[in-house]
């Protein structure tokens, strides 16, 4: 059995983290499943646990002119209904898991869990989200891409926790979100896609294509996107094969119990192509 701490304040939480080797639990919707034990026995945690979900200091949604700031312990159901939540993020949250799970799960938990199939990460990657990490020694602000380095792997230090998620305010003329799961609700993603674009007088001004569940981390290739910005939609659509070829190198899905690599790859590329078609 391991010990657990339920801190009263955020400052106390950071102090506990500094002192020991604690695992932080937000909503616990992944951790409690992963560490489940025989019914009636306590979960099998391998480290002491810090329960952060009760930290009301970290439950907020604020904004200034450029950025929306989401406190790390804000649950997804709150975000789903919050007027400041970016529309794309809200669209993603709406089909995530089940209502019961949404009431306790958090963006911070999704980030640290770092599943390549996490739905919310699609929106966070597309929206250039930044993650504020904090310890008693101070804050670090990292892009979402820099925060997550592999399946279940982040750059968080042992004494750090996620304090806030910052999402720059961005407008697009076109967005598309598609999740392909085993069923229409309460399903883990087989493959997911978000496309965002701004098209002005036939010219692509901004293009973002994001895929999940197709590689060890969420795929967004800014260099490929950049190749197409400034070009006409017509031009891009006349040669989608090249663009698809670029993504083909990065979309390397696996066979597992939920789907197979052939389907995942093809469905991912078909979705991207479908999104591009909507720009015309």
């Amino acid at each position: 059995m391991v010990s657990h701490v339920i801190p009263k304040t955020y400052a106390e939480a950071l102090t506990v983290l500094k002192a020991g080797n604690h695992r932080v639990i937000a909503g616990g919707t992944d951790m409690m499943v992963r560490h489940r034990a025989w019914a009636g026995l306590p979960p099998l945690f391998d480290k002491p646990v810090l329960f952060a979900f009760t930290l009301s200091e970290l439950k907020y949604v604020k904004e200034d002119e450029q950025v929306i700031c989401i406190g790390a312990m804000t649950d997804l159901e709150t975000l789903l209904h919050h007027e400041r939540t970016p529309a794309l993020l809200r669209q993603v949250i709406a089909i995530m898991a089940s209502p019961a799970i949404r009431y306790v799960s958090t963006l911070a938990g999704n980030i640290v869990n770092a599943s390549p199939a996490a739905d919310s990460l699609l929106a966070l990657y597309a929206l250039d989200a930044q993650v504020v990490l904090e310890s008693t020694s101070g804050k670090r602000i990292l892009s979402i891409e820099k925060t997550i380095v592999g399946p279940g792997k982040t750059v968080l230090h042992d004494d750090e926790m996620v304090a806030e998620i910052r999402i720059p305010k961005t407008r697009f003329t076109h967005t598309m979100f598609r999740k392909v799961g085993g069923r229409r609700a309460d399903a883990i993603t087989k493959i997911g896609f978000v496309g965002c674009a701004t098209v002005n007088e036939g010219i692509i001004r901004d293009l973002r294509l994001v895929f999940n569940a197709v590689a060890p981390v969420v795929v967004r290739e800014k260099s490929v996107e950049a190749l197409h910005v400034g070009h006409s939609v017509k031009n891009v659509l006349s040669d989608t094969d090249t663009l698809m070829h670029h993504y083909s190198e990065h979309i390397k899905p696996i066979d597992d119990q939920r789907s197979n690599q052939h389907y995942r790859k093809e469905a991912a590329l078909r979705l991207a192509r479908h999104f591009l078609d909507t720009l015309a």
Binding site: G182, R183, R184, A185, D186, A187, I188, Q257, R258
Partner: peptide, 11 residues
């Protein structure tokens, strides 16, 4: 019941 998918009310 995560991996073995049966229909939900939505499906």
């Amino acid at each position: 019941m995560t991996d073995y998918v049966i229909p939900t009310a939505v499906d």
